[in-house]
């Protein structure tokens, strides 16, 4: 705690001569494992250590990637998937956060809803995939609904625990200032729950892609899950790998966006 002041000083004085070298070293440390992995992917098939039919070298996948990017095929699938993942995630935030805050803060609501929440939370979303297809068909609605459903639980449960575990001393402090119940909720409970809410949203971000891909593999006419599955089916293996790489990139970008948003909105927590 007491050293945070020194840390601030250090951070503001970080433009010295050693600064560039330190950054370069950090960048190298952060990427060396990835380069090693890609090198292995390139070399092992070329040396004949793995069958190139099933695992073509990285450069082959990369040229398939570039080819598809140029033809617009990749963008089409990427846009379809990203759109579904985002819509589902945003809907889940819009429903899960307010609902979680109310459940967490108002004990009586929690008592009534808890058993139901426990039941749903322990039902794997993928187990319900056929149900969603049955009821909502194979179109966009069922996919977005699937993502929404999978994302709702981590957001809801983390928000509930955030609202339930607000430091009682902060509540006492606010109550002593004669704050009304409503203002206590909006001005204290909501901000105090933010870190937990973000933990939920980050977990949900990872779920959204996982569940979406599964849904797209089961039945779709566009999307990265469809692309990967279809390419495998028609034996266009480099294309399949290009789809998989795009998927990881989408996941990475989504996570990075969520981490940045979290850092910005909970900067007050300090070096978290």
């Amino acid at each position: 705690m007491s050293t945070s002041v020194d840390r601030l000083v250090e951070a503001s004085g970080s433009s010295g001569p050693g600064h560039f070298a330190r950054r370069a070293a950090r960048l190298l440390r952060g990427t060396v494992a990835i380069f090693a992995f890609l090198a292995a992917w390139e070399i092992l098939p070329r040396l004949g250590l793995v069958d190139t039919t099933f695992l073509p070298p990285f450069s082959t996948a990369l040229s398939a990637f570039v080819e598809m990017a140029r033809s617009g095929e990749l963008v089409e699938h990427l846009a379809a998937s990203a759109g579904r993942a985002f819509s589902g995630l945003i809907l889940a935030v819009a429903v899960g956060v307010p609902l979680g805050l109310v459940i967490g803060w108002y004990r009586s609501v929690a008592e009534i809803l808890n058993p139901l929440l426990e039941l749903f939370r322990n039902t794997a979303p993928l187990a319900l995939l056929p149900v969603f297809v049955l009821m909502l068909g194979m179109g966009e609605v069922s996919k977005v609904a699937m993502v929404f459903y999978a994302c709702l639980w981590p957001i809801l449960l983390n928000t509930v625990s955030g609202a339930r575990e607000v430091d009682p001393l902060l509540i006492r402090s606010a109550r002593s200032m004669a704050l009304s119940q409503t203002r206590l909720f909006t001005r204290v409970v909501v901000p105090a729950s933010l870190p937990s809410i973000f933990t939920g949203i980050r977990i949900a971000g990872a779920y959204s892609i996982l569940v979406l891909i599964a849904a797209e593999m089961v039945g779709a006419k566009a999307g990265l899950g469809y692309l990967v599955n279809y390419a495998q089916f028609t034996f266009e293996i480099p294309k399949m790998y290009a789809g998989i790489v795009t998927l990881s990139l989408l996941g990475l970008v989504l996570n990075e966006v969520l981490v940045l948003a979290e850092r910005r909105l909970t900067a007050w927590k300090g070096d978290a």
Binding site: R172, S176, A178, P191
Partner: peptide, 19 residues
């Protein structure tokens, strides 16, 4: 009940960490 005619200071500060 609580009122603004009284102010209280707690041992553990009770500052709002987000402010």
């Amino acid at each position: 009940g609580p009122g603004l005619d009284r102010g209280i200071v707690f041992q553990q500060y009770a500052l709002f960490p987000w402010k």
